[in-house]
């Protein structure tokens, strides 16, 4: 009897969610369409939807005159290194904390949990001092080193590995596997779903990260995409709308593709961890 809603009721809900979906997606559609428009058309009142004469001028200018290719490569390198580091280091410690006994385990676990909620704004000034004194300001290592090992990753991996049967260890030991061999050959292959979630969330966080690269990247050779776009869009002389929209597309679209390909892992990961 719960499912016996009238046809009209459902039709009404479909209409509402469809209108809502159009409103949610409209800014993206406008961004993509606008990136093909010329300056004159972008300033017209009232605004147009479809470009009158679509051209790739904005994109060629972005990559030929403005070096967005370099920023793109920087963003990609930093995101890949940060993701790889977290997958490796967090699964290693997560396994040790979940399955092994060792001196100092409780202290380490408490320290990781205590720092889980500390916002980035608390650490960025001393982190800047540290990285500056190491001579890493305005370098790619300065951009990725501080993010290679994050407490959230350890928390996620420990939770997941705790759910695996502990018999696996004993089975491995009986078969003569070394302690590290058990991790590499038995545990890690079973961590696929957790690694997928952690990998996607880390890549996303790194690609979109703004405050730290804004502080560390001081010349164009180390800018990441969000830094370049933000500085360009707030700069004094730059009011070329088409370029800004094309730049926003270059930041957003690669991630959108990654998201659509991996969306199942994504959404399951969000539902279980709640972290965006």
């Amino acid at each position: 009897m719960l499912g016996s809603k009238s046809r009209f009721g459902k039709w009404w809900v479909y209409l509402v969610v469809t209108v809502a979906l159009v409103m949610v997606i409209a800014p993206f559609a406008w961004m993509v369409l606008g990136s093909f428009k010329g300056e004159g058309e972008l300033r017209r009142v009232p605004p147009t939807w479809l470009p009158e004469s679509a051209s790739l001028d904005n994109y060629t200018q972005l990559f030929a005159q403005l070096d967005f290719g370099t920023y793109f490569v920087n963003s990609a390198i930093v995101a890949v290194v940060v993701t790889a580091g977290n997958l490796l280091f967090c699964s290693m410690l997560g396994y040790a904390l979940a399955m092994l006994n060792f001196p100092g385990k409780r202290v380490l676990l408490l320290l990781v949990l205590a720092t889980l909620m500390i916002p980035g704004v608390v650490t960025f000034v001393p982190l800047f001092v540290l990285v500056a004194n190491a001579g890493l300001i305005d370098s790619l290592p300065g951009l990725f080193l501080p993010f290679l090992a994050t407490p959230f990753g350890v928390f996620l991996m420990r939770q997941f590995i705790s759910g695996l049967p502990a018999d696996l260890l004993d089975a491995g030991r009986v078969d003569g596997a070394s302690e590290l061999g058990i991790f590499a050959r038995i545990i890690l292959p079973l961590c696929g779903p957790a690694l997928a979630t952690l990998g996607i969330l880390t890549f996303l966080g790194s690609w979109n990260n703004f405050l730290w690269p804004l502080v560390v990247a001081q010349t164009e050779k180390t800018y990441t995409l969000p830094v370049a776009l933000a500085l360009y869009s707030t700069g004094q002389n730059n009011t070329q709308y088409g370029l800004l929209l094309a730049g926003a597309c270059v930041v957003v679209l690669p991630l959108l593709v990654v998201f659509l390909v991996f969306q199942r892992h994504f959404i399951e990961g969000i539902a279980t961890t709640g972290i965006k």
Binding site: F28, L245, L255
Partner: peptide, 14 residues
């Protein structure tokens, strides 16, 4: 869910 994954900088520009 799509807006969540986008860079705030990029959507702020848009």
């Amino acid at each position: 869910y799509t807006p969540v994954i986008t860079s705030i900088v990029a959507v702020a520009v848009v």
